[in-house]
């Protein structure tokens, strides 16, 4: 405990004069499917608009014809996953099909809270990721996104496109450690 006290004491002694906390920012913006689609494409993701009565599992089979190990709570899964699922089972998942809560038009990000993940590692360890999103839940910017999410919960992630890196000579490579591809299925 001594370091805690000494650090806090040093902060109290050295902190600058009080300044006000600015009010929560909000700038208007376009909360459109077009913007969302534009930006998700820009960052290497894909948007597919579902027809009203189109069965989800059919779309998933068409998108991933070779996938045998599918984890999902939205369509019939071939690999059951919950928070206790061991790593070696997770590691073998080809595709995870999960629900996204909210889309952000300015950057293509989708909010995925822990409850939608089945297992916390699933969205990243799965080779491919599909997020199902209601087109009415697209907001314009991160300001509105955080306003809508309110509390980020125990664990939650804004996922914007597939995993990527440019650490070798600034060459963009999709599929670093997380999902190699990301599709947002809009309904």
């Amino acid at each position: 405990m001594p370091s805690r006290e000494s650090i806090l004491a040093a902060v109290r002694a050295n902190r600058p004069a009080a300044t006000p906390l600015p009010p929560v920012a909000d700038f208007a913006g376009e909360a459109t499917v077009e913007q969302f689609t534009h930006w998700l494409h820009f960052i290497g993701g894909q948007v597919i608009r579902l027809a009203p009565a189109q069965p989800l599992d059919q779309v998933v089979r068409q998108l991933y014809p070779d996938a045998t190990r599918i984890a999902s709570d939205l369509i019939p899964a071939t690999v059951p996953v919950d928070q206790q699922t061991p790593t070696e089972v997770l590691e073998a998942v080809d595709v995870a099909v999960l629900r996204g809560e909210l889309g952000v038009a300015e950057n293509g990000a989708v909010w995925v809270p822990e409850v939608n993940m089945l297992h916390r590692a699933l969205p990243m360890i799965s080779q491919h990721l599909a997020l199902v999103l209601d087109h009415r839940s697209i907001v314009a910017t991160m300001h509105q996104a955080y306003a809508a999410v309110q509390h980020t919960g125990n664990y939650g992630v804004f996922i914007a496109g597939p995993s990527k890196t440019a650490d070798i000579e600034q060459s963009l490579v999709i599929g670093a450690h997380g999902a190699r591809s990301l599709v947002v299925l809009l309904r």
């Binding site: 952000v104 950057n107 991160m142 992630v157 804004f158 914007a160 997380g178």
Partner: peptide, 22 residues
């Protein structure tokens, strides 16, 4: 909202980092 809009754009020109994890 403010910081995630600034960070990746300033760093690499991306609109946001791929994973913003809480």
């Amino acid at each position: 909202g403010v910081f995630t809009r600034l960070l990746a754009r300033s760093a690499t020109g991306q609109p946001v980092t791929t994973y913003t994890s809480h």
